[in-house]
């Protein structure tokens, strides 16, 4: 069985020292080992951004796509080979701005993949513009007087879109994050894990200390029930989304692959492509 070390490669990440993304990388490697995967059974599909580099930093199959499109690529991979464990990953701009349309529909579609958003409330790679996750009034290169647009509440949107697994974590809490990724992988269906991942270079507001002061770990909330959708929504609204842990899980709904009529239970990628003469003749009938 592979240990987390086997999910490391010898590529040195180009992230700034102290960037939150490092722990997410470590958490993915640990979670993959903990759920018993071998590197070739994992595919990490990422978008474009500092965060998007993640697919190159895990020893597994990796696909670094285009900005905002990690999710459709990842769903394509999973549908092609359902034996693979597929993790999609990218930044808050990637998933909640340019790729928001895909995010909502991937949630609705509920293909069995895990989506990890590395949420630093800013655009890191393009050197510090506002993101949909930036706070109102947040000054960035593109909002010199402070952002006037409302901060997006992605997890509330996810619940409204029918998400079957919604979690949030903080890159400093490696233990919780690893455990949530494991749960996400084991969940049948689409699992969304938003991770507060401080950008030490461009975001001087949402820092490690700021998060530590402001977030509430759901483990400490008495009576919190992650199977209760209304409670999940209420809690997110009450706290302005500043909670970590498993927020909501619905295990009753089957994943897309299991609901689509006729969809193969075996990996399609390993199917024989040839059409039999009989099948071919049968197909021609309706055109005669």
């Amino acid at each position: 069985m592979a240990t987390f070390k086997e999910f490391r490669n010898n590529v040195k990440p180009n992230w700034c020292p102290g960037c939150g993304d490092f722990s997410i990388q470590a958490a993915i490697q640990r979670a993959a080992a903990n759920v018993g995967l071998e590197p070739e059974q994992l595919a990490v599909i990422s978008g474009i951004g500092c965060s998007g580099r993640i697919s190159g930093y895990v020893n597994a199959y990796g696909f670094h796509g285009i900005h905002g499109r990690a999710l459709p690529i990842a769903q394509g991979v999973k549908l092609a080979n359902r034996d693979l464990t597929v993790i999609a990953s990218g930044g808050d701009g990637d998933g909640f701005a340019i790729g928001m349309g895909h995010t909502v529909h991937a949630i609705r579609r509920n293909v069995n993949i895990t989506y990890i958003v590395m949420d630093n409330q800013i655009y890191g790679l393009t050197k510090g513009q506002t993101s949909p996750r930036s706070a109102v009034g947040f000054k960035t290169k593109s909002t010199p007087e402070g952002s006037v647009e409302t901060t997006l509440a992605p997890l509330e949107i996810a619940l409204a879109a029918g998400a079957t697994f919604v979690a949030q974590s903080f890159s400093s809490d490696l233990k919780q994050l690893t455990s949530l990724i494991e749960q996400g992988i084991n969940h049948e269906g689409f699992s969304l894990i938003n991770v507060f991942s401080p950008c030490v270079t461009f975001n001087k507001i949402n820092t490690y200390d700021w998060f530590k002061e402001n977030i509430v770990n759901l483990a400490t909330v008495e009576g919190y029930d992650p199977t209760n959708r209304v409670m999940a929504m209420t809690k997110l609204m009450e706290t302005n989304g500043m909670i970590t842990g498993l927020i909501y899980q619905d295990t009753s709904r089957r994943s897309y692959e299991n609901l689509v009529p006729g969809f193969s239970q075996e990996s399609l990628a390993h199917h024989d492509l040839t059409l039999s003469q009989d099948d071919f003749n049968g197909l021609l009938k309706e055109f005669k």
Binding site: P72, G76, G101, E266
Partner: peptide, 23 residues
């Protein structure tokens, strides 16, 4: 054993096809 996925737009259609071909 296969299917048609009606995607949310053509960007998803093309990128999903890329993912599936890659796999």
């Amino acid at each position: 054993g296969g299917t048609v996925v009606q995607t949310e737009d053509e960007i998803a259609a093309a990128t999903m096809a890329i993912g599936a071909n890659y796999a």
